[in-house]
Deep mutational scan, measured.
Amino acid sequence: TGEEYIAVGDFTAQQVGDLTFKKGEILLVIEKKPDGWWIAKDAKGNEGLVPRTYLEPYS
C-alpha cells in the first residue's frame, strides 16, 4: 500500500530507474526517501523514482 499523489507537472526520466509521468497523473508513493526522490508506481504498474517537488497529495 501507499499514498496517492497527483503530478503537478510533466517529468521525463533523466536516468535508468526514474519514472516518466504527465501532469494530472495519479501516482502511488511507496517509499519517501530523504533525498527528495520518492519511489512511486503509476496506473500501469510501472515503478520508479520521482521528484517529490512534482507531486501533491491527492484526496
Rank of each mutant, 00 (worst) to 15 (best):
G24K: 03
V16F: 11
T53Y: 12
L28E: 07
Q14G: 11
L27N: 00
K23L: 08
L49C: 05
E47P: 05
P34Q: 13
T53E: 15
S59A: 12
L27T: 00
I39H: 08
I30L: 13
Y5L: 02
G36S: 06
E3V: 12
K33E: 04
E47Q: 11
V8I: 14
E3M: 15
V16E: 15
I26K: 07
K23C: 05
Q14H: 08
P51E: 09
D18Y: 11
L55R: 00
K41E: 05
D10M: 03
K23Y: 07
D35A: 06
P57R: 08
T1E: 13
A43S: 15
E31N: 10
T20S: 14
I39L: 15
E3N: 11
K32P: 04
R52K: 15
G9Q: 15
T12G: 06
A7P: 01
E47D: 06
L28Q: 12
E56M: 15
V16W: 15
D42P: 02
T53D: 15
E3A: 10
G2D: 12
P57W: 07
D35E: 08
F21V: 10
Y54L: 11
Q14K: 10
S59I: 15
W38E: 00
K33Y: 10
I30Q: 06
T1H: 14
Y54K: 09
A7G: 04
D18R: 10
I30E: 02
G2P: 11
Y5S: 01
P51C: 06
D35V: 04
L28D: 03
I26Y: 05
L28K: 11
I39T: 09
W37V: 08
L49F: 08
P34N: 14
V8D: 02
E31R: 07
P34K: 12
G17T: 13
L55I: 10
T20C: 05
K44G: 15
T1S: 14
L19I: 06
P34Y: 13
F21R: 00
G24Q: 03
F11H: 09
Q15F: 09
Y5G: 01
F21L: 05
G9I: 14
W37Y: 11
E4I: 12
Y54P: 02
E47N: 10
E47Y: 10
Q14E: 10
D42Q: 03
E47L: 15
P51R: 08
Y5A: 02
Q15M: 14
V29C: 03
G17W: 08
V29R: 01
F21Y: 03
T12Y: 11
D10L: 02
Q14Y: 06
V50N: 00
I30K: 09
L19Y: 01
E25I: 03
V8Q: 08
E3D: 13
L27G: 00
G45S: 05
T1L: 13
K32A: 05
V8N: 14
T20I: 04
G24F: 06
L55E: 00
E47S: 08
G48N: 01
L28I: 14
L55F: 05
L55A: 01
V8L: 10
I39P: 02
Y58N: 08
L28T: 14
I30C: 04
G45V: 01
D35T: 08
A13V: 03
K41Q: 06
K23V: 12
E25W: 12
K41C: 05
P57C: 05
G36D: 09
Q14C: 06
G24R: 03
I26D: 01
E47A: 11
K22D: 04
D35H: 07
R52T: 11
Y58E: 04
G48V: 02
A40V: 10
E47V: 14
G17V: 04
W38S: 01
F21M: 06
